[in-house]
């Protein structure tokens, strides 16, 4: 593990961390509310909206955000991924942000929940509630997207399990503590301080995402 806590470096900005735990909370609430019957349908819908807004924000933050949040910083070619995996167990290198395999895990962990949440916008329970964009598609398309929405849950759950297991494996086999930096933002034994994007940029992007999404819902219900 690292040298000591004295050279702790701020690697995860507030927005990456808020996004991460917000997404976890929204997805947990979406799962819980889906199991509670029809009276919880509104909670399910709003937790899904939260998932979509968070993911859309994260996509933009991956383009315009802090250094460790950017896709260009953490997405690498297959050679580097394989090389990283080959020396995974005894690899001395500590990534500044996401490591080569973790970076691609981020892509999957953003993409699958996005498809899951977006398909919910078109879904219908064929009893009482339909997603806000359901009127925009034919009923056969809505049926297909409803099936996707229901069936994709198993994959989402599997990904969450792999994600948590991987964090456990890093702790167990490499002594890397990955949870604490995602809470505090600080990581030990990192060679330099990555560039942190200004807060007003995050707030502007978040406001923009919410405005666009709200306009979409308003257009659908008009």
């Amino acid at each position: 593990m690292g040298v000591s806590g004295t050279n702790a470096v701020y690697v995860w900005d507030l927005w990456v961390r808020l996004f991460h735990w917000g997404l976890a909370a929204a997805m947990a609430l979406a799962w819980y509310s889906a199991e509670q019957g029809i009276a919880w349908q509104q909670v399910h819908a709003w937790s899904g909206y939260a998932v979509i807004v968070l993911l859309a924000f994260r996509l933009l933050w991956g383009l315009f955000g802090s250094e460790t949040a950017r896709f260009s910083q953490f997405l690498t070619g297959p050679r580097r991924v394989l090389n990283y995996l080959r020396h995974w167990r005894h690899g001395a290198s500590h990534s500044i942000g996401h490591n080569p395999i973790g970076g691609w895990a981020v892509v999957v962990l953003l993409a699958v929940p996005f498809v899951q949440a977006a398909s919910g916008l078109f879904a219908t329970d064929e009893i009482l509630f339909s997603g806000p964009l359901n009127p925009w598609v034919s009923s056969s398309t809505a049926d297909a997207l409803t099936s996707l929405h229901v069936q994709l849950f198993d994959l989402v759950l599997a990904l969450v399990i792999v994600h948590v297991a991987a964090i456990g494996a890093y702790r167990l086999f490499r002594g890397d503590r990955l949870v604490k930096p995602m809470i505090t933002g600080y990581k030990d034994s990192v060679s330099y301080q990555p560039r942190i994007a200004p807060a007003h940029r995050a707030l502007a992007l978040l406001a923009g995402v919410i405005a666009v999404f709200a306009a979409l819902l308003a257009a659908a219900s008009a």
Binding site: G37, I38, A39, D125, I127, V150, Q151
Partner: peptide, 18 residues
């Protein structure tokens, strides 16, 4: 009404193709 709708949903969940 929600009680009735819930009886629909519980069978749909268990006995109808997703």
């Amino acid at each position: 009404f929600i009680q009735v709708a819930d009886t629909c949903k519980s069978c749909h969940d268990d006995y109808r193709e997703d």
